[in-house]
C-alpha cells in the first residue's frame, strides 16, 4: 500500500541529454511516474521507446514549469541540464524551497561542490568519474603487459 503510494509520487528529471534521458527511461521502466523537462523539444527524441512519463518543454528554472511538473509532491529531483549554474539553482530550489527528500545534481566543475555543502543534495561529477575509469582501465592494461 505504502509502496504503491510512494511510487506514484513523481520524479523530475531536468535536462534531457544523454544522461537525463537514460535516467528517465530507467525510472519509467521501474514503474515510477517521471516528468522530463527540457527547453528544446528535439531533445526528447533521445528518450527510449519504453519511456511512459511526461515530457514538458520549458525553462527548468521557471517555478511555473516546475509546479506544472508537480514538484510539490515529488520524491526525487535530478538536475542534469548542460549548465552547472542552472543545475545548482534547480537543486537548491528543490531541496531548500520544496524540501524534496532526494535531490541529485550533475556538475561539470568540481569546484561547485562547495556551493551545495551542508544541504541535502548529492552531486555527480562526470570528470571525476571519467578519471577514475581512466585510471582503472589504464591500470588494467598495464598489468596485462
Amino acid at each position: 500500500m505504502f509502496f504503491t503510494k510512494w511510487k506514484a509520487r513523481p520524479i523530475l528529471v531536468m535536462g534531457c541529454g544523454w544522461f537525463g534521458s537514460r535516467v528517465a527511461g530507467d525510472l519509467s521502466l521501474k514503474g515510477y511516474s517521471v516528468f522530463v523537462i527540457d527547453k528544446d523539444q528535439t531533445a526528447f527524441r533521445k528518450l527510449p521507446d519504453h519511456f511512459s512519463g511526461y515530457e514538458i518543454i520549458g525553462d527548468a528554472t521557471d517555478i511555473r514549469i516546475l509546479e506544472r511538473a508537480e514538484i510539490q509532491s515529488a520524491q526525487m529531483v535530478v538536475a542534469a541540464t548542460d549548465h552547472d549554474s542552472i543545475n545548482c539553482l534547480i537543486s537548491q530550489m528543490a531541496s531548500r524551497i520544496y524540501h524534496i527528500p532526494k535531490v541529485y545534481v550533475r556538475f561539470h566543475d568540481p569546484e561547485n561542490q562547495k556551493l551545495i555543502y551542508g544541504y541535502q543534495i548529492e552531486a555527480i561529477y562526470p570528470s571525476e568519474l571519467t578519471l577514475q575509469e581512466f585510471n582503472r582501465i589504464a591500470f588494467l592494461s598495464e598489468v596485462k603487459e
Binding site: 549548465h83 549554474s85 539553482l89 556551493l115 555543502y117
Partner: peptide
C-alpha cells in the same frame, strides 16, 4: 543576462 548565472555568481561570492 542569465538568472541562473547571476545566482551562482552571488552564491560563490558569499560562500567562497
Amino acid at each position: 543576462a542569465n538568472d541562473a548565472d547571476n545566482f551562482i555568481i552571488c552564491q560563490m561570492a558569499q560562500k567562497l
